[in-house]
Amino acid sequence: MTDGTQRQEMWRQYILGELSPGKRDELDQWLAEDETALEEYLVVFESMEHPIGDLPDIYAFTDRVMNALPVNDSSVNQPLQLHRKWAWIKHPITHYTIAASITLLLITSGFFDRLEQNADHLWSGDNGSISEQWLSRTTSWLDSWNRSDK
């Protein structure tokens, strides 16, 4: 047997799962590191007619898998109940309602009126950059707002 034929046989055994776990791990590493090894593997894989094999009875296989699944596992149902319990939080109407409530609260408290009064002073005069003016006016407004709440 030539070296190329031995390699093809090795890859055929790898594909069919006929190698020892140690040899299989060695070939896994070789495939990950060497591109020519990957090309050899693909050539052998494509040349094999049905390397994995067909299921003789697909319906029997499906039935075996479904019967192996747990029927009444409480841990499976619990996340669904939590999801249903908190599903309203993800609904867009909830977000719009919360945003509208906050806006209404700010409007009725006079938040925007105070903000507008202090913002008018920013545009009068040329004493520094606009960002510095905004910063000083905002901090003074917050200080006055904190003092009025006490």
Rank of each mutant, 00 (worst) to 15 (best):
T5S: 06
E40C: 06
L106N: 04
G4V: 03
S136Q: 11
R64M: 06
E18Q: 13
E33P: 00
H83E: 04
W134S: 02
V44I: 05
E116V: 10
D113T: 07
D73M: 04
Q8Y: 15
H83S: 10
T97A: 13
D63H: 11
F111I: 01
Y41K: 11
L82D: 05
G17F: 11
E39V: 13
N118Q: 13
Q29S: 14
N77A: 08
L142I: 14
L115I: 08
M10C: 04
E9G: 03
P70N: 01
L82F: 09
M10W: 05
I107F: 13
I52A: 12
D63M: 04
Q81P: 00
E40L: 10
L19A: 09
E26H: 12
S47Y: 02
G128M: 06
S101N: 03
L19Q: 14
D63G: 04
A119R: 01
L55F: 04
E116K: 11
A100H: 09
I98L: 15
L142G: 01
Q117W: 05
I52K: 10
F45R: 15
Q78A: 12
A119H: 03
S47L: 07
N127Y: 07
T103V: 08
N67K: 10
I15R: 04
K23T: 15
L69G: 00
K90N: 12
D149N: 06
D3E: 15
K150G: 06
V65Q: 03
E39N: 09
D149A: 10
S140D: 14
A32G: 13
P92T: 06
W88A: 06
W88Y: 13
Q81N: 04
A87H: 08
I107V: 15
D34G: 03
T5Y: 11
W141L: 15
Y14L: 09
E35L: 05
L106R: 10
T94C: 03
T97L: 14
L19D: 07
V65K: 01
A100I: 07
W11Y: 10
Y41H: 15
F111N: 03
S129A: 07
W86D: 09
S144Y: 00
D63A: 13
T139W: 04
W123S: 13
M1H: 08
A100T: 07
D34H: 12
V44E: 08
A60M: 09
N67Y: 03
P56G: 02
T139V: 06
L19V: 10
R137T: 10
T62C: 09
R147M: 09
G4K: 12
T138W: 01
D28L: 08
L115A: 13
L42K: 05
D149T: 00
S131Y: 14
Y59K: 12
T97R: 11
V71Y: 01
L135V: 03
T62E: 14
Q6A: 14
H95C: 00
P70K: 01
L82Q: 07
L31Q: 10
G110C: 05
W123C: 12
Q133V: 08
L82P: 00
D113C: 01
L55A: 09
